[in-house]
Write a protein that binds this DNA or RNA. Structure first.
Lengths: 211, 211
DNA sequence: AAAAATAGTGTACACGCGTACGCTGAATTC
DNA sequence: GAATTCAGCGTACGCGTGTACACTATTTTT
């Protein structure tokens, strides 16, 4: 019952996942990664790959899931820091920037596959981001007493700004991180301020667009 | 001096550019496009490609330039509409959404190459977006009398939000366009409101981050 | 103890790729 | 009119790709 065989299989599967993650870089995207490259890096014959995944897409979706998991762990860390005192916006941005520093390639994967050519990938990444947004939305409703609609708009805008800043962070030097973080924090404050001002005046949210 | 030869060459060059643009779709990115595919679509032998571009990268950068040009034309249109009366934010968003509808593949190119694997591509796309942001920034300073720093933060955030909405627009049905546009408009209003409130209080922009 | 299942291997194939090279015929220059 | 330039073509090469297939060694099931 121990399953010495299943155990070994799981280990090899991990090697494939880690091999793929390890090959990602600013110059190498997942979609430009070949089955043979991954198998080789994992110390496997190319054909053995099929014992674990039907194709590279399946491996890729696994990576996206892992990335989402990492992101959610990150958010838990951020919440812990907030409980110890500090501005929500500031702590969140700093935590996110640290994530980029430590997991640049995972974040690159999300960014790239979000606008990539595989519908399945796009859907998977958008789902992870939706989780991210929804948890922030709940928080804003409860802590800041915002209407559902306003909270959603703020959460959505905030996540967009933070992801964009993360994307920028990938291409700049460490010394410029703080400036980027400060700008991002200020932009989030603009949004928060605007959301608070509009809250309760939902009639303003209905806009007539020319048809 | 007429240059019947140069004329023909220019025409063929255009065919290559159009062939590349025509092959882009939600399932096909520029980076997954081969020299041979493009040449074939343009009705050329693969080796003839080299008479016009040294490699696919050079063609790609040309496409990015064209996309930037199209975007700037779009902004001119938007300004014309505003002069005839109407909210800046509303007109801008509607104009941008129309751009997405008519030039989905060009916009996809920008989105994808911005986070792609070629440093040259990333730089080119970011340059185009910077133009876009700077023109908005100037506008905000002049028309809304904002400080340089606040105007930049607002312009940067607004462009980020609009591009993100454009990205979302690519994946939804036409009937949901209006809802997306309305949300985007409201988010831009949050940002504008926040920027106005913080304007002139620049001491608040300096934030101490933990080192 | 025998039989079945299966993770991993090695060989082999057709395919599309970028591109080097030499040629051709028309436009351009002299 | 002769010489030169050059856009476009066809052939050919080596390379990396995904994956079909048959095989082996070991674990698991019977």
């Amino acid at each position: 019952m121990s399953g010495i065989r299943a155990q070994q299989k799981e280990k090899t599967r991990r090697q494939l996942i880690d091999a793929a993650l390890g090959q990602l870089s600013s110059e190498k995207s997942f979609s430009s990664l070949s089955l043979r490259e991954v198998a080789k890096e994992a110390g496997l014959a190319p054909t053995s790959f099929y014992r674990h995944f039907t194709d590279m897409d399946e491996l890729g979706l696994t990576l996206v899931d892992e990335a989402g998991l990492t992101l959610r762990q990150l958010m838990r860390q951020a919440r812990q820091r907030i409980e110890k005192g500090g501005s929500v916006i500031q702590i969140s941005v700093i935590t996110f920037m640290e994530f980029i520093e430590n997991n640049g390639n995972i974040f690159r994967l999300l960014l790239r596959e979000r606008s990539g050519t595989s519908p399945a990938f796009r859907a998977a990444v958008n789902r992870e981001i939706r989780y991210f947004t929804m948890e922030l939305c709940d928080y804003l409703q409860q802590v800041n007493k915002l209407d559902a609609e306003v909270a959603y708009l703020q959460a959505n805008a905030a996540v967009t700004i933070v992801f964009s800043a993360g994307s920028d962070a990938l291409d700049i030097e460490a010394k410029d991180y703080e400036q980027l973080a400060n700008r991002t924090i200020q932009q989030l404050r603009f949004i928060a301020k605007g959301a608070t001002e509009f809250n309760g005046r939902t009639e303003l949210l209905k806009i007539k667009t020319k048809v």
